[in-house]
Simulated scan of single mutants.
Amino acid sequence: MTKEFSLQYKKTIEQCISQGGDIFNEKAFNNFTKIALHSEHKKVQARFRVMNQFGANTLYSGNGLTKVDINSPWGEKINSKYGVVETFTFERDPLTINDLNDSVTIIPLKPIH
């Protein structure tokens, strides 16, 4: 889920919606991507499953930060492109930061404007 692929995925979602597609119906989205994307179809379908099964929507930017939806009530009130740090853990029972002890370093970050 790189920055470049995240942009491509967002464009695909927008294109599907603009053509009346249902982005919450896997079969319908699968048919759309087969026609619209050909060679990228399998990669986009995998990303689609991550979105619909785990919640990593199109605001998941691929650069380590979650994009701010400027059209949302919250997004209209802040002056920033990005919000929280992206995290995606694919585990049935993930450990907490405290459980990881010295294997994780927390680094304070400065806001990006």
Rank of each mutant, 00 (worst) to 15 (best):
M1V: 08
T2L: 09
K3N: 10
K3F: 09
E4P: 00
F5R: 00
Q8N: 10
Q8I: 08
Y9S: 00
Y9K: 00
K10C: 04
T12M: 06
I13Q: 00
E14F: 10
Q15C: 11
I17W: 03
D22H: 06
A28R: 03
N30Y: 13
N31D: 13
T33W: 00
K34H: 13
A36L: 05
L37V: 13
S39V: 07
E40I: 02
H41K: 12
H41S: 11
K42S: 11
K43T: 11
Q45M: 15
A46M: 09
R47C: 01
R47L: 03
F48Q: 01
R49P: 01
V50L: 12
M51A: 13
M51T: 05
N52K: 06
N52L: 15
N52Q: 15
Q53I: 09
F54Q: 12
G55Q: 12
A56W: 02
N57C: 12
N57V: 06
T58N: 11
T58V: 15
L59K: 04
Y60N: 05
S61N: 14
S61F: 00
G64C: 12
L65V: 08
K67Q: 08
V68A: 13
D69K: 09
G75H: 05
K77C: 10
I78D: 10
N79M: 09
N79P: 05
N79I: 11
N79W: 02
K81I: 08
G83N: 09
G83W: 01
V84G: 07
V85E: 03
F88I: 07
E91G: 07
E91Q: 10
E91N: 11
R92K: 15
D93S: 14
P94S: 13
L95Y: 10
T96Q: 05
T96F: 03
I97P: 03
I97Y: 09
D99G: 05
L100C: 14
D102V: 14
S103T: 15
S103Y: 10
V104I: 15
T105P: 04
T105V: 15
I106L: 11
I106T: 04
I107D: 02
I107W: 00
P108N: 06
K110E: 05
K110T: 14
P111C: 05
I112L: 13
I112Y: 01
H113T: 10
